[in-house]
Design a binder for these strands. Structure first.
Lengths: 220, 220
DNA sequence: CGGCATCTTGAGTTGGGTCAATGGTCGTGG
DNA sequence: CCACGACCATTGACCCAACTCAAGATGCCG
């Protein structure tokens, strides 16, 4: 992607944005099954998306931080396939889908940008399938922490100090593990000297150690 | 989607198709990391896509049958994020990405069709995340068989008799379980009178029973 | 300060993994 | 056409990672 085009791209993107909504922590942006007419970008705050199974089981399918777009699952059927909830006070930008469809041939780079964003979501989901299907608990949590760290770094924050916005139970739901297991693994990581854990504050002490931990358990 | 528009849509789609490749069973269509210049549609046969982890672990991320499109993961970076392999002799249609980008404003419904297809893949992936993150072995296999049955039905085949194109190990990789576990669950399903299993031939005897099995294990 | 939600830790259980042996199926070549 | 060999599937015995249940600890907010 040529750097020159970026300002134009952002300008063009900006014109698609409809409104900025404010959500209190715990508030629902949209419900599974509801009519889907827009995509969303987190401006500030933190959002989760979750799938609700009939019998009450919940699977969190994503956590989105400032600058990240979500809601692509609703395009296929015009109905949301998951529920979106703010996990801290957040501001959300809305991009009406009709605006995206109106993108003309003069903004082909913008059209392509949306394809890329959806492709990125697909790659991310496949990575999660790999994590859930073939990694052990410790590997999953290490990968999760490294991923958050990476995303903070890209936003210009320190990659070594993170404040978790979600609770242990939500991390567990995302990683296919129970709260107690998450808690135990955090304690173990601390014992191993990989990180300091104090409630939601994580200080990463040994990035390389975390990376090496993933992939140690050969086989599964 | 208006039924009237369908013939036009198919005609328009057809014009994007570049070539039809023939692949022998076991042949690789593209490798992870390779340059991505196209999307693919299965014309005949059966294809799997898989993520390869450094340490040799493999996660199958999808099985695609006639009429299904795949390869969306390569759009973001122009490099394939997974490897695609034919699991039986197959014919594959290639849709060069440049053709998709050239779609003009006169074919807005076609442009939207691609958004829908990518959205469908995202929904499917989220369903898999739910399956891998919060279902037990029996539920996973039941869901898998019901999904195949459903896709056969949509293509006009009997939903009660399926011939598995993949081996047990591949089912296991897809569902995050080991070969032996898949084998044991198939045997159990047969004992329970839910289906007859003879090698790759599955005869479903009790669809309702399979559906009810999913969601019985409350909690986890 | 009290009440409630969240997090941690322990003890015991279990679903699915591992290892190992056997049984089927199919393709190839004599 | 049959026999061999390679690959795949099944089954059993045992084990361990993660779950369940239960009890405290910690922190937060009114």
């Amino acid at each position: 992607m040529p750097t020159e085009a970026m300002p134009d791209l952002f300008k063009a993107l900006d014109e698609l944005v409809y409104v900025r909504k404010r959500l209190k922590s715990g508030a629902t942006l949209y419900h599974s099954g509801g009519h889907c007419h827009a995509l969303y970008v987190v401006k500030t705050g933190f959002v989760k998306t979750e799938n609700l199974h009939d019998d009450g089981r919940v699977q969190i399918t994503g956590f989105y931080m400032a600058g990240e777009m979500f809601g692509f699952d609703g395009i296929e059927t015009n109905a949301h396939a998951c529920t979106s909830v703010a996990i801290e006070d957040s501001e959300i930008c809305t991009i009406p889908i009709e605006n995206i469809e109106k993108i003309g041939p003069n903004q082909m780079h913008l059209q392509h940008h949306f394809y890329k964003l959806m492709s990125r979501e697909i790659v991310r989901d496949h990575t999660m399938m790999m994590l859930l299907g073939s990694m052990h608990g410790e590997e999953r949590l290490a990968a999760f922490i490294l991923n958050l760290s990476q995303r903070l770094l890209m936003r210009g924050y320190s990659p070594y100090h993170l404040v978790l916005r979600m609770k242990r139970e939500e991390i567990g739901s995302y990683l296919g593990l129970k709260v107690e297991t998450i808690s135990r693994i955090f304690s173990k990581f601390q014992e191993m000297g990989l990180m300091n854990v104090h409630q939601k504050n994580i200080q990463i002490l040994n990035v390389q150690g975390l990376k090496e931990l993933i992939g140690q358990h050969i086989g599964k």
